Amino acid sequence: MSRTPSGPDSPGETATPVTGHELLAGFSSLRKGLRQWMDRNIPADGGMTVPRATLLMGLTLKSEPSGMGELGEPLGMSPRNMTVLVDGLEKEGLVRRVGHPQDRRVKLVELTPAGRRVVEQELGPSHAAAAALFDDFTPEERAELLRQLVKVGDSLRTRGIDVPSPGQS
């Protein structure tokens, strides 16, 4: 987005309407920047990636083992890619597959104690560092940004797109 709309803070000027196309372009450029910011704040050693970190962090929010489809959907990962991701984390002893209590054909994924340690000791601090991006915002600005993001999510859901609400994985 190359222009900044004028607003009520600009004396003598009227607000320039921002189009949906401009907002979409803004989200697209932010997506790339946020991904780079997350990459920079993930521990450099040990081969940690954003999808691996996101999966491990997401598993800490689960009270029970979860299916790979449920875990992969918020990451936008295909079942095949999810299998590769879980295979690697399982090989390192960070997650394990367990049987489904009612359907023996289904395997669920849970954190191991070693995986929980990685999340607490390595990913927790890097997650806090990544979240520091919003330290430049006032509490009111953060609340308004979250409100607007929830509204975008609601708009997608009304159009049939399954978007997790903030706080869900």
Rank of each mutant, 00 (worst) to 15 (best):
T60M: 03
P51R: 06
A128R: 15
R157T: 01
M82P: 01
G47N: 01
T112H: 03
L61T: 13
L108A: 03
D45S: 11
A114Q: 10
F134D: 07
E73Y: 07
M77V: 00
P17V: 14
L156E: 02
S2Y: 12
K91H: 10
R117K: 14
D87Y: 03
G93S: 00
P65L: 06
A25V: 14
P101G: 05
M82Y: 01
V84M: 10
Q121L: 13
P5R: 14
L56Y: 03
I161A: 14
T54A: 15
D45H: 12
T14C: 00
L156V: 06
L123E: 08
I42L: 15
T138C: 13
E92M: 11
L75C: 04
G67C: 05
L156Y: 09
S63F: 08
M1H: 13
G7C: 09
K151D: 14
P101Y: 08
M38H: 06
W37M: 02
M48T: 10
H100T: 04
Q148H: 13
P79L: 00
R116W: 02
P164K: 06
G33E: 15
T138N: 10
E122T: 09
I42K: 03
L89Q: 01
G115F: 00
L34T: 03
S78T: 13
P74L: 04
A131W: 09
G46N: 05
S78N: 05
D154N: 07
H127E: 13
L85P: 05
G124Y: 07
G69P: 00
L56G: 04
G115R: 03
L156W: 05
T60A: 00
M1G: 15
L145W: 11
G72F: 05
T49S: 08
G33M: 11
A129E: 14
V118K: 13
D9H: 14
D87H: 07
R96M: 11
P164A: 10
G12Q: 07
I42M: 11
T16W: 06
G88Q: 11
V50T: 12
I42W: 06
G20K: 05
E141D: 15
A131L: 14
P164S: 08
G20Y: 09
S63A: 13
K32H: 15
N41E: 01
G115T: 00
D135M: 10
Q148T: 12
A131Y: 09
V18Y: 00
G58M: 07
H100G: 08
